[in-house]
Design a protein around this nucleic acid. Structure first.
Length: 905
DNA sequence: CCTTGCGTACTTTTT
DNA sequence: GTACGCAAGG
């Protein structure tokens, strides 16, 4: 609350503004040197709405941070008068550091640099009571949200199987992304969930209010509602924020757009979700901050500012339309909009100049990251999209040594992993290539597995980026729930989460009783528990247990003010039996979980108290990956956005996977275009080398399916692409084999051989694709599941370029069993691989294959054999069922394991 | 109340 | 193929 009143302090000695000003040179300041003309324009056009279309690798972040430094250095605004929003904490952090580097020292006093959500919280905490919350409201994460919804669905007597809470949560998210309150949702949605859609939404919101809680969507929704309903509050913010900067504008959703429009005080226009009273006021209204009205323009701005407030009279020099005070600068790239499925509206960026009339649009097209081949390939590909503002990346760098973008074919996903693994080792060996500077970017996370398996057997260091984040892990959430109960005795969801964790015999029945009791009396569950242990309503056993739990929480709560928070946290976890629970857990993950808990306590050190820690956790916590060790990164294309690598591997470019079938089915043309943008993002991550792969067989949902090359391959320009005829060290695996064709060049000697779109392998791929393009689209199916592989025929004209990109539907390839193959077996081709794994120390991964490909009756083991298992140790075979063994392990007890996972001793 | 077994689903993910 | 969640059994 405080800094509103001190909103225009004189620059502190050594404060950011002061230092920035001191750093300012007489002519062009240091920070401007090294910018190209477009970048410089983007930095210096401070007044009026500006859209910076920043292509991949064109120095977007640099522009953004330099712009802020410039605004500060020229005295246009104080740090506290700049609103700078990003999407992720990571981006916010990076911006903070980089501004700090420009301006020198730490970025103190940029209180309004943060994510949409964190700034939303900040606004909301100040004015919580205006939307019916208390300032100390809790922020629910997805998990809490789902559990709460589930309760509501059950309360409505709906079958939670037919109406899953997950689905509702997704809908909710969609509504909130669009800024729709219960009364605003479309009729169709209102009738969803057995006609209770709207009712459930309203009930959910009501429940949040009684819990004094918000979900993530509310962090945007509430501020919007609040600002709309309270013009005086809105006016405060208008006076405060002299400059607004938005990162990754192409990712904003409707709600974020509304939020920005409100704060940017954009007057009513055609597309107006943010109707608001005209609140352009003169500065004399409030405080010392001055903000000129739209009409007042630049001159009055200077006139009104006393020397003590803003010491630099050249405040508003020239630029920008004097008639506009909307100093909003949005930076983004429509070609990198890949979050449509979670509510991002590319439209926001596409029509920026209509939303903000008179906007300056600046294109950054000079790329500093990649080679000409990579840019050429990416640009040509993305040019197939219709909905774009249009930008062409270029670079001056031209090195004839630069490799073209490679397209490689493989037999199946395992070969793909193997070949990429070898390519990585090759680069490492021949060029001393850092593993840290290589990445494998996949469309879907299931693809990661084959790489992990392969790299484990190869002994190649890798790290998976993405995955469940630290604070989403079960043990972390459990621990946090304990802390929440101690700090916020009204946190029902937290209490419900851990009453019976570790198991203490307080199951569903007891919880339901507690719940009912609490509801009836309108008190928090913990309080209800406290009361109920004094009554006869519970059975003696649960009653005594519960009494113990209640006493524990009382005790911890009392310790809260006096004890050091890290120690208290440890004590809570120990005394509750939670630590012990994992110590006794035999599973492989248990040690890791204990380690995570320690890490959690460690990370608490940085905070003052348990409550202040909890405040930050909800929004800000994530696990930093350690970059100390050299390792290849494996991640999804989505999480690769914003990163760059020397070499990038792009596997899985097959119809149905990439573009993904579901994106096609559900998104139509725009779905396809988003997939194409994803491909563009993938290629442009590479500085020097991009290696694309596709395979002809992939296992999807447990079934092997034949696949055809992605249409995106056809959209790459030949001039920048090299089609590789490949072979691997496994000889028999000619990589160019499509659906049963033998390796055409597997005798071709070492490594890769240059080829082109004219090679037989490529033509076969085309033929296959042409054939499929003719198969009628099948609607309403669930994509890849439920089919069997079908023989691919190659009777189409060789070399005929399939209609490829055009028809919007991938051919399906699931109509009958592939000849010569059981439909549930890995496609066998070549020789020796699987059988060689049977003897002589097969590794676990290959062992799995053995287990599956061995025919019945050929078992290696018989009852009574002594065997060894990596995880479970030694044991005795108790019974055999096909390739599954039941083994009595000496330590771990009886388990069913695949034959391939054990070895004879 | 806790374990076992079956059915179902299965792209992407930040806050 | 596998993981996860729910429903029935000990």
């Amino acid at each position: 609350m405080s800094d509103f009143n001190e909103s225009a302090p004189a620059p502190r000695q050594g404060g950011i503004a002061a230092r920035a000003m001191a750093a300012r040179g007489t002519s062009a300041p240091d920070y401007l040197s090294g910018l190209n003309p477009e970048q410089r324009a983007a930095v210096e056009t401070t007044e009026g709405p500006v859209l910076v279309l920043a292509g991949a690798g064109t120095g977007k972040t640099r522009v953004l941070t330099t712009r802020i430094a410039h605004i500060l250095a020229t005295g246009r605004a104080y740090p506290s008068q700049i609103l700078a929003v990003t999407f992720t904490n990571k981006a916010a952090r990076e911006m903070k550091t980089r501004i700090g580097m420009l301006v020198g020292g730490q970025v103190e006093g940029m209180p309004w640099l943060g994510t949409f959500h964190s700034i939303g919280v900040k606004i909301l905490r100040r004015h919580a009571e205006l939307v019916g919350l208390k300032p100390n409201f809790t922020i629910l994460d997805t998990d809490d949200q789902i559990r709460l919804i589930k309760q509501l669905i059950q309360a409505e007597n709906l079958d939670d199987k037919r109406w899953p809470a997950r689905t509702f949560a997704t809908m909710l998210d969609g509504w909130k992304n669009k800024g729709l309150a219960p009364k605003d949702i479309p009729e169709g949605d209102a009738r969803a969930f057995a006609g209770k859609g709207r009712h459930l939404y309203a009930a959910y919101q009501a429940r949040l209010m009684t819990l004094n809680a918000c979900d993530f969507g509310d962090l945007l929704m509430h501020p919007i509602a609040l600002l709309k309903a309270n013009p005086d509050v809105l006016a405060e913010y208008h006076r405060r924020f002299r400059y607004i900067l938005v990162d990754e504008y192409q990712d904003t959703n409707v709600a974020q757009y509304m939020w920005l429009r409100l704060l940017a005080q954009q007057p009513k226009s055609g597309r107006d979700e943010t109707a608001r009273p005209p609140v352009l006021r003169q500065a004399q209204d409030e405080g010392t901050m001055s903000r000129p009205s739209a009409a007042a323009g630049a001159s009055s701005q200077i006139a009104e500012r006393s020397s003590t407030e803003l010491p630099h009279p050249e405040l508003v020099e020239g630029r920008g339309s004097a008639a506009s005070t909307i100093n909003i600068c949005c930076v983004g790239d429509d070609d990198q909009s890949i979050y449509g499925w979670r509510g991002a509206e590319v439209d926001n960026i596409l029509r920026f100049d209509k939303d903000f009339p008179g906007a300056t649009v600046i294109r950054l097209e000079r790329n500093y990251r990649s080679t000409g081949h990579i840019l050429g390939a990416a640009s040509h590909l993305i040019a197939h999209n219709e909905d774009r503002l249009g930008k062409t990346l270029f670079t001056d760098r031209a090195d004839p040594e630069d490799p073209k973008v490679e397209v490689n074919a493989g037999w199946d996903s395992e070969e793909e992993a193997r070949a990429i693994g070898e390519a990585i080792e090759d680069l490492q060996r021949r060029e001393n290539h850092d593993l840290n500077d290589m990445a494998i970017l996949v469309r879907a996370s299931f693809q990661m597995r084959s790489f992990e398996d392969r790299f484990v057997t190869m002994g190649l260091n890798y790290r998976v980026i993405g995955g469940p984040r630290f604070y989403e892990r079960m043990e972390i959430r459990d621990a946090l729930a304990y802390f929440r109960c101690v700090c916020q005795p009204a946190d029902d969801l937290a209490f419900e989460r851990i009453v019976n964790t570790p198991k203490r015999g307080l199951g569903d029945a007891t919880v339901r009783l507690l719940h009912d009791y609490a509801r009836e009396r309108q008190i928090p569950i913990i309080a209800a528990a406290g009361e109920m242990v004094e009554t006869e309503e519970l059975k003696p056993k649960p009653r005594n247990t519960l009494r113990g739990v209640v006493a524990d929480f009382r005790r911890w709560s009392e310790l809260l003010p006096t004890m050091k928070h890290t120690e208290l946290a440890e004590q809570i976890l120990d005394e509750s039996g939670y630590t012990e629970m994992w110590q006794n857990d035999r599973s492989a993950e248990a040690p890791g979980r204990l380690e995570n808990l320690k890490e959690l306590i460690r990370s608490m050190e940085e905070y003052e108290s348990l409550p202040s820690f909890l405040e930050h956790v909800a929004l800000v916590m994530d696990a930093e990956q350690n970059a100390d060790t050299d390792a290849v990164s494996i991640m999804t294309l989505h999480s690769a956005k914003g990163l760059e690598f020397q070499t990038v591997f792009l596997p899985g470019w097959e119809e149905g996977l990439f573009p993904h079938q579901r994106a096609l089915d559900e998104g139509g043309r725009s779905g396809l275009e988003e997939e194409r943008r994803l491909a563009y993002v993938g290629i442009t991550r590479a500085k020097r080398r991009a290696k694309i792969w596709f395979v002809s067989n992939r296992r999807i949902h447990g079934l092997w399916q034949s696949t055809i090359p992605s249409r995106f391959l056809d959209e790459l320009p030949e001039a920048h692409v090299e089609v590789m005829e490949a072979n691997t060290s496994y000889g028999g695996y000619g990589a160019s084999g499509f659906g049963g064709y033998g390796a055409s060049r597997w005798d071709g000697g070492n490594a890769f051989k240059e080829s082109s779109y004219k090679t037989p392998g490529w033509k076969r791929a085309q033929a296959a694709q042409a054939g499929f393009a003719e198969t009628p689209p099948r609607r309403g199916g669930d994509g890849w599941s439920g089919g069997r592989t079908r023989e691919i025929t190659y009777d189409a004209e060789p070399g005929s370029r399939g209609s490829g990109g055009g028809n919007g539907f991938a051919g399906r390839m699931n109509d009958g069993p592939a000849p010569g193959r059981g439909h549930n077996q890995p496609p066998k081709k070549g020789f020796g691989l699987y059988s060689s794994a049977r003897k002589g120390g097969p590794r676990e991964i290959q062992g799995e294959l053995v287990a599956k490909s061995v025919a019945d009756g050929e078992n290696r083991f018989s009852k009574g054999d002594r065997v060894f298992h990596l995880k479970f140790g030694n044991g005795t075979v108790a019974s055999i069922d096909g390739n599954k063994l039941t083994v009595d392990f000496d330590k771990a007890g009886q388990k069913r394991v695949l034959e391939g996972f054990v070895e004879a001793v």
